[in-house]
Write a protein that binds this DNA or RNA. Structure first.
Lengths: 126, 126
DNA sequence: GCCGATATATTGTGCAGCGATATATTAATC
DNA sequence: GATTAATATATCGCTGCACAATATATCGGC
């Protein structure tokens, strides 16, 4: 296990959930993940972000690597372990809960502001 | 304006959206925000996080302060400016979009993993 | 006088995410 | 055969968010 992370921020670790979720669909190698996430229109995942993240997840036993020798540079395929599936279940559920609470505040506010974009200065106008 | 922030991470700035959204409902002072967020079951907002955040938003002209002299320590009420409303509109909309893309990946994966929590080792069982 | 609650604020630290860079392999282009 | 581009993994240093710790101020209750 890597040292206890300080992931306290509201949606810190959402990248972990994203990667775990993709791997739940089947093994992937890093470069393919980069392209996949970029193509899906999701927040562009950078190589300098992904590879350390994969190493962390591997160190935590959530994913396990297999080298594939193809033409060109060899690919490192990552497979979700049972521990990884468990982590995905928990983290994704936590994420859903946090999301719901967040949405309960944001959606009404968004509606309110969208409906009244620039409230009049004149109190008689209300 | 403060120098261009490096807010690139997936849901970085979600705290900003949360605070802006609450302020869209009416002016609040810092300590009340702390209690409000904690009571709402949302990720507990810490004083060491909130006050610098409020100062940043004030410096960016998104909110404007008014001191209230009450019994006890004076309160600093923050009101959403028109610029703040505009920022909320945009940031919350961006947030919704990012969310939808994220959910499109996470929800199916969560269902899949929940339905097959521990796939059998025996290939003949498939 | 002291403690606890209320209330704002600053300082130092940990670390996630990123830009920049390095490295390896192959195919295409010059 | 040198150069470029695409594929593919990896590391290092920087920035800035969020937090713990701490300081400060005012009031009420003991």
């Amino acid at each position: 296990m890597s040292p206890v992370p300080n992931r306290k921020s509201l949606f810190h670790g959402s990248l972990d959930v994203l990667v775990l979720a993709i791997l739940a669909d089947g093994p992937q190698y890093g470069y393919a993940l980069l392209k996949k996430v970029a193509d899906a229109g999701n927040h562009e995942l950078k190589a300098g972000t992904l590879y350390p993240l994969l190493h962390r997840m591997e160190a935590d036993g959530l994913i396990t690597p297999t080298w594939e020798k193809t033409t060109g540079r060899p690919r490192k395929w990552y497979t979700l372990t049972p521990a990884g599936q468990k982590a995905l279940t928990k983290q994704a559920a936590d994420w859903q809960a946090a999301l719901a609470r967040m949405q309960a505040v944001v959606l009404p506010a968004l509606r309110r502001v969208t409906r009244f974009p620039d409230p009049p200065m004149n109190p008689a106008a209300g």
